[in-house]
Amino acid sequence: MLELRINGFGGQGSVTLAHLLAQAALENGEQGQALPFFGVERRGAPVRAAVRMSPTTIHAHSQCELPDYVVVMSEKLTQAALGEGIIETGTVIINAPQAVPIENHPTWQVDAEAIARQAGLFNADGPLINIPLFGAVCRVLNIPRNIMEQTIMNKWPGKNGERNLGPAGEAYNTVKQVNA
């Protein structure tokens, strides 16, 4: 069972990202689970969500205390996110404009904000970084690109889905490992 935790700020689309990843697992022929932690929801407050993928039935219903992967929606949250727990050799995926290598952890970086801005993906809270991050996380988890695209189109059929394919695909191609 693969376990992943998303750490973000309220309004960044962490819940939707968790849902997309769980759906992608299903499209990829596995079981998927998205379990966001719902607190007293407010914009800008730290939020987290658990995601699990497994070839067999998922029995876990807790938050991911020691995940294999941590997705950091904002560079500012990096230390707080790691402080919540990750396995010793766990992988970190960070949304940042430049490389932020984390000691002892394979670290990947993607500039999700720049990709969203360039694609004109905005809502009232700012650029929609969860779409590029979905592409980036799929790449890191080796989920095929066509599965990633199919998941987006199933969630938002038609033009709305198509608008997301470009930025998700760009992040899929440009997310890079910044240490080994």
Binding site: A22, Q33, L35, H61
Partner: peptide
């Protein structure tokens, strides 16, 4: 059934 752990948990 449990609030959030089941009610808000997305699964197949």
């Amino acid at each position: 059934f449990d609030g959030f752990a089941i009610s808000h948990c997305l699964m197949p």
